[in-house]
Nucleic acid binder design. Structure first.
Lengths: 215, 215
DNA sequence: TCATTCGGATAGTTACTCTATCCACTATGG
DNA sequence: CCATAGTGGATAGAGTAACTATCCGAATGA
């Protein structure tokens, strides 16, 4: 098919497709002449994946390109690197990092140790966890230990589910894709479910009571 | 204190503080003369909160303003509205919404029904859940029912923890603040913990095995 | 044939988040 | 009391991200 049909079928504008081609998120079509190319189903799938990662996953185009490059096997990472790399969609362009306090790093380490998690000392995830803890503190919250542990258990449960899914297959390409997409989309899924559960829990505990305007 | 001291103590540049003032995220200082104002601790706290929400929470300035307005009690929302509104940080400016497929809405409803969650038919969360499910499908995944339920249980566990925290107090202002900050920062916390748990689980299941380059 | 469409390059647009400059005025050290 | 550095506020500019529009010459298709 040609670019206009690809555009129609994917719902992505021709201009945007060209943009993704330029940016290297989408592989070029097969050239049939110096200025004519043919696209196929693989391009359609790729566009859908790009849409899922950017729209729902909230990833930047740059971060999406990196992730897709990993899926394509151009740079085969360790699982840890891969998860660290997806952090970049929050960092935006990874420029600034609010300083992490030493005490919060210690709190982060204590948490992971309580749960018996293996965390490399230089892991970006370790820093990120400390940063989130710092953010809580600077917002005026002291973190309850039980609350943190509850969250960690919830995270563990989700992670176990992810790996159960992976265990079904031996195809490395498929595993990688599941991990990548599962990390990004699974995060949105978990966040949305948490909000639903919160709203439902509020209903359950407080019935129809609303938060009233202040007197 | 004057603006330069506020800047030093908060680590936010004077220009940025002025920007937040302009944008209505930060309340004006007490004017002591036509062109002189005094700032206090409340401004410092607010700046820290802004930093937590934007840097760690990844929220836009516009979305942050809305959330802060709710905390300030200018518009007292229901819990559901409030959670829905935080979705906006993904929407960016709420412009485009990828169409949700009917079947995915049904799948979303089935999921919430299985868990006995109360979800209003017009809830933005219901649509968002369907959208995430659509994103999975369009990325080439069929969602395993057990996997989804596992995620839902994890979300429920996290939500219960949040409400345990809220139950400690009767101060509506405090509850609102906990819900808002807890929703945004808690999401980052849960996401980070999930990645840590994933990495750790990978280690546990596969030992030192790496993903090797393709032969 | 001849208007339409194509791929590709380049330039322009919009939105967001700051940052820099300007101004009239104020506080302060000497 | 004066020089100078700092202040609040307004306005304009800068940098980035993610498109979007325009242009071109070649190629397709009725």
């Amino acid at each position: 098919m040609r670019i206009s049909e690809l555009s129609e079928r994917s719902g992505v504008s021709v201009a945007s497709i060209k943009y993704y081609l330029r940016e290297g998120l989408l592989h070029r079509g097969e050239r049939t002449s110096p200025n004519q190319a043919r696209y196929d189903e693989s391009h359609l799938h790729r566009l859908r994946l790009i849409g899922a990662l950017t729209d729902v996953g909230g990833m930047s185009v740059a971060a999406t390109r990196e992730l897709l490059a990993m899926i394509d096997g151009e740079r085969r990472p360790e699982l840890q690197d891969l998860m660290g790399s997806t952090l970049k969609r929050i960092d935006a362009q990874g420029g600034h990092r609010p300083d992490v306090e030493e005490a919060d790093l210690a709190e982060a380490d204590a948490l992971t140790r309580r749960h018996g998690w293996y965390v490399h000392a230089g892991s970006p995830l370790r820093e990120e966890l400390a940063r989130v803890i710092t953010a809580f503190h600077r917002s005026g919250f002291e973190l309850d230990r039980d609350w943190l542990d509850g969250y960690a258990e919830a995270a563990e449960q989700a992670a176990r589910r992810d790996h159960d899914l992976v265990s079904d297959t031996d195809d490395l390409d498929e595993i990688l894709k599941i991990v990548v997409v599962g990390t990004v989309l699974g995060e949105r899924l978990l966040a949305t479910l948490r909000r639903l559960a919160q709203a439902s829990e509020a209903q359950r505990r407080h019935g129809d009571r609303r938060i009233e305007p202040r007197s």
